[in-house]
Design a protein around this nucleic acid. Structure first.
Lengths: 162, 162
DNA sequence: CCTCGACGATTGACATGTCAAACATGTTAG
DNA sequence: CTAACATGTTTGACATGTCAATCGTCGAGG
């Protein structure tokens, strides 16, 4: 395969080895993500999205936030958040109410049930992270993972929208 | 925050620093995944799922495979594959036909349109991988990423179904 | 006033994923 | 032969995501 790779591409295309690493990396992180999600689901009946929303609200002053503030905080598109909040509201985990200061806006409030669900999910979730991620790596690998994430993030941010 | 972490949890829960790395790592790989997917979509009108299926079929002898063989090859649940094949068939990228040797089974065939779509997507996709992943990392980081993926994979495989 | 554009949020249409149940055909034990 | 089980695949219901369009309110300019 390598010897067939046309040379004229120069630095444009990854080598066979780089490609192998890419596939390993992206597929493995996908498996990891889905295993963590499935643990969260079976331990607590929450999706990773639910968890992110509940975490943000739990840490927010008065356990409430403006909808777009919340979206920015967890890095979601507003439409995604709106759909997700609809589902969470149906399940009684959060409540939406008109914003006092800006009639256009909505405030998202944590409900007692939401707070309770989040409280119960935390320890098992952190345990899963420990078992499936932290314990899989040597301390050096863990640090390297942090640096790789930082490098990727910086690179991606630099080419935002390219 | 660190000093507040209750000690009695022992090795069960990640430290604040381990947790920070986890979040960085998982969020960044997610952003990376979605950026690559969106490049693939705009360059070639293919989803990552389409690409995986077309790649497998392109490399298969006679550009065809049994459905469950294909599912195993790309690591998908059969139901997921069945839904996806339905969508790809509607778009004319693949064709399903009854298996000659086993009347229960289905053979998935690459169509000319599918082969064409895959051919056109390859170079831009590899270029995106180079630009967004390979170029973001030093050679050492790239190797480390490969080792981290291998370590995670081995760990996850070892606790399959736990 | 009143219209226009910005802003905050929601909606609808559709692609993608998971789970459990359903189907259809093959094989095997009685 | 036939009931029971195994095998290969599909289906339906529903959760999640993206994209573009919409809706209601605000604020500035005529």
């Amino acid at each position: 395969m390598t010897k067939d790779t046309p040379r004229q591409h120069g630095r444009q295309l990854p080598t066979a080895e780089e490609l192998r690493i890419w596939r390993d990396f992206i597929e493995t992180t996908d498996v990891l993500r889905s295993r963590i999600a499935s643990r969260l689901q079976s331990d607590s009946a929450l999706s990773p999205g639910d968890y992110a929303v509940l975490l943000a609200l739990t840490e927010a002053p008065e356990q409430q936030m403006r909808s777009s503030e919340l979206a920015a905080h967890i890095g979601w598109e507003r439409s995604r958040l709106s759909h997700h909040l609809g589902r969470m509201e149906r399940r009684g985990l959060i409540r939406r109410q008109e914003c006092a200061t800006d009639p256009r806006g909505a405030e998202v409030h944590l409900t007692a049930a939401g707070a309770e669900a989040f409280r119960g999910s935390t320890v098992p979730h952190l345990r899963a992270i420990r078992e499936l991620f932290v314990d899989a790596l040597t301390p050096e690998q863990l640090l390297a993972a942090g640096e790789i994430a930082a490098a990727l993030r910086a690179h991606l941010d630099a080419r935002q929208a390219k």
